[in-house]
Design a binder for these strands. Structure first.
Lengths: 339, 339
DNA sequence: CTGAAAGCGCTTACAG
DNA sequence: CTGAAAGCGCTTACAG
């Protein structure tokens, strides 16, 4: 490339000052329309590239928002992300993405990077074991944080997530209404708010149905398609095998279903399966998966909206907004409609 | 937050110059070890945050790499991304992600943003219809680009992708060796190099097997799980229905399989199905999917490596590296091993 | 081994 | 409506 074109290049070419050029390029009403046109024209011709680092150094606004989740490849987060991306795009914010894979040090180094770049804000689904102090550190250094999917008490931040306990209750109630009296729960961990809430919802649902919980019904851990698949074996080994399963997530449920099918057990016929999240794939699974719709896009949209509001100066104090989930009945619990 | 802590804050506190502090913090051998320790200690205590914008304005190196693909939620890209992420992380580069959804204007505005941020490089799976000039524009403005998955002739850039024609040939050969004489191909479009290559491989495979291609065997278009699912109908409507299907991707194949199953046609029994990409999910699908392993992580790793080399000053001229795919036989083409 | 000074490319009061 | 000048927080020759 030739000599770098900067504001002063344009200014000199036109016999104006850099101040005027700067103002004109940002459409300030302070500059006469004709002048503006000449300037923009020249900028285009010279191939001018706006230097955001310089501007941001001066204004201390970067137009960058960081988003950090467990793993983008998980469709649950993917769907939230799409909504965030859409909101941010409309507001001309650039977003930087990071997977923390529940590794606290990865999350920390990302927050650090954002701080160094002077990012305007952070949308975070916190890694396992994130201490509230980590969130406060960001806030104190001028990086407002919004929590999604998982929340952390005492962090003093806004959060948006589905009402997991209520949602899982819906799933259990549905199974009970279908006549099931022994219901297993596969997947999830108590180390996240999500895991705790969904388990609580499961237990509460059982209680409402007058069913005494049996510890062997609870297979903790799986949170991915693969680990769901692998838990088909342990499930089949439960003595007095339950007639129904609620899963921590759709991914786990899909894994469980194909794992069962591999062993000759037909999901939706031999055993009822309910998922959680209602990801896109649920409706075209085999069989179509009954699940709890968790409002991913609403979470993403509202989180982005809240951040944008904070950027425009709104104050906020700790508060978690619960999005209300609802049940989506398909064929994996038996086939009311034609399969 | 209190007063912002900067280099000069530390310098004053210690009675040193900012030059020394700057050097010390970056571990320059020019600074005495004791001084270094004092400085680092003070930085920690004062809660100093390095301002990368300022540094980058001065050095014109930003430590930022942009990555832009069709859609991160597609596991094919997801797996490439993981490899890139890993490489970049090790080299302390921050990466900014963008989905272009094959929208040229989205891709352009992303490249623009990178230019404005002074990004060090770009890894791109170009959107449909990307003109070579777009790539050259980036290069001319100091943004070296590496192409992945899809390539563009005349862009003058390095590229890494699987040998799609060869790989699809493998799939067809396999089917032919199993005795199939009528093989459909579902999915993909000629608008991408990937689509063209895979179709060419399909046609060549047919020719090698002495099979005359029939136009009704080719269902163009589907590139997602959902559209694959929806193409089960059209496939079943083909007169003299083919006994086997090769699919543009695993996602399409998975959709097709569940679509067929929904209509009572058993994939792997009533019709053979082969996918492409060998994504994680392929082995736990029902039935396990025979597919072509496409070397996603190698693509990602080598692309990132090549970019890193260019950043350290290596020159490069247009060249595409083809990663050799290989066939992964599972049960979706009939069940040699126990299903 | 350490310091004084210039400069990266913008924006923002302040004058005129 | 336009211009001159300072300053954002670093790094980098250059001296000493």
């Amino acid at each position: 490339m030739a000599q770098k074109v900067k504001l002063s290049t344009i200014a000199e070419a036109l016999g104006l000052s850099t101040a005027t050029v700067s103002l004109a390029l940002r459409d300030s009403p302070l500059v006469a329309d004709v002048t503006k046109e000449r300037i923009k024209e020249a900028a285009r011709e010279l191939g001018y590239i706006y230097n955001r680092r310089a501007a941001s150094l001066r204004t201390s606004r970067s137009g960058i928002v960081g988003v950090c989740v467990h793993d983008v490849m998980n469709p649950f987060y993917g769907e939230i992300l799409k909504a965030i991306e859409h909101e941010l795009d409309r507001n001309r914010q650039t977003f930087i993405l990071c997977n923390h894979y529940d590794d606290l040090s990865k999350q920390r180094s990302f927050v650090d990077t954002l701080l160094q770049l002077g990012a305007d804000g952070l949308i975070l689904s916190p890694a396992l074991g994130t201490p509230p102090a980590d969130i406060r550190l960001a806030e104190e250094n001028g990086l407002p944080a919004i929590l999604i999917a998982r929340t952390i008490d005492g962090a003093g931040a806004l959060g948006f997530r589905g009402d997991d306990a209520y949602g899982m209750g819906l799933a259990v109630d549905h199974l009970v209404s279908l006549g099931h009296r022994s219901i297993a729960m596969i997947g999830g961990t108590r180390a996240t708010s999500t895991g705790r809430e969904r388990e609580a919802g499961y237990l509460a649902g059982l209680a409402r149905g007058g069913i005494a919980f049996r510890p062997e019904w609870r297979i903790e851990g799986p949170r991915s398609r693969h680990s769901g698949f692998d838990s088909a074996g342990p499930f089949l080994a439960i003595k007095d095998r339950p007639t129904a399963i609620v899963c921590f997530s759709d991914l786990v449920a899909l894994g469980v279903m194909y794992g069962l099918a591999r062993q000759g057990i037909r999901p939706g016929v031999d055993v009822a399966v309910v998922g959680y999240d209602d990801i896109d794939e649920a409706e075209i699974a085999m069989p179509p998966l009954t699940t709890v719709s968790n409002g991913q896009s609403e979470v993403g949209e509202r989180a982005a909206g809240a951040l944008l509001e904070r950027l425009s100066g709104m104050e906020a104090r700790e508060h978690t907004t619960l999005i209300r989930p609802h049940l989506r009945v398909r064929q994996s619990c038996g086939s009311p409609e034609a399969g």
